[in-house]
């Protein structure tokens, strides 16, 4: 296999970065294996679970379905760059059990609150329907979002 390497520049959590990676690597692979930033989790690599959610130009996307080539010149925010008040709300409301899905949920929540600063329960459910959690039954996740929004 002839591995191809290219250089890509983008903004990661507010900082400009340059990274050499195969152009068809996903953003998830680049974050975890090249940059070694592992807060973004790999649950299925198929866009089915939401654990790898990041913000691309402010919108929630699957980093496992985003090529590093898609990211060139854009802005990426991972869990490491999200408003800590959301992280704190998840922790204090007991929404964290095994915790593997939570970074993705935290990022999805950041996108949700950007669109709906005071979301209804319906809006929370609609916006987080792509983030699977196997531990919590989602009850405390809804509470965490509401706590982060101050509703």
């Amino acid at each position: 296999m002839g591995v191809i390497l290219r250089e890509f520049s983008f903004k990661l959590n507010g900082q400009p970065v340059s990274v050499k990676a195969p152009p068809a690597y996903t953003l998830l692979e680049t974050l975890r294996y090249v940059i070694r930033l592992t807060g973004t989790k790999d649950g299925c690599s198929s866009g089915d679970c939401g654990a790898c959610t990041v913000l691309l130009d402010g919108r929630a996307v699957h980093s496992c379905l985003t090529l590093i080539s898609h990211v060139q010149g854009r802005e990426v925010v991972t869990v490491e760059g999200v408003d800590p008040k959301i992280v704190k709300a998840y922790a204090s409301e007991g929404a964290v059990q095994c915790g593997y899905c939570i970074p993705g949920l935290v990022v999805a929540t950041a996108a949700l609150l950007r669109e709906h600063p005071k979301p209804s329960t319906e809006e929370v459910r609609e916006m987080l329907k792509g983030n699977l959690c196997r531990c919590t039954g989602y009850v405390k996740i809804v509470k965490a979002v509401e706590a982060a929004a101050g509703v």
Binding site: M1, G2, V3, I4, R6, P22, P23, A24, Y25, Q72
Partner: peptide, 12 residues
Amino acid sequence: MRSLADVDVLSP
């Protein structure tokens, strides 16, 4: 699940 490390991407 295979790696695409050998796939080139052209970005016009």
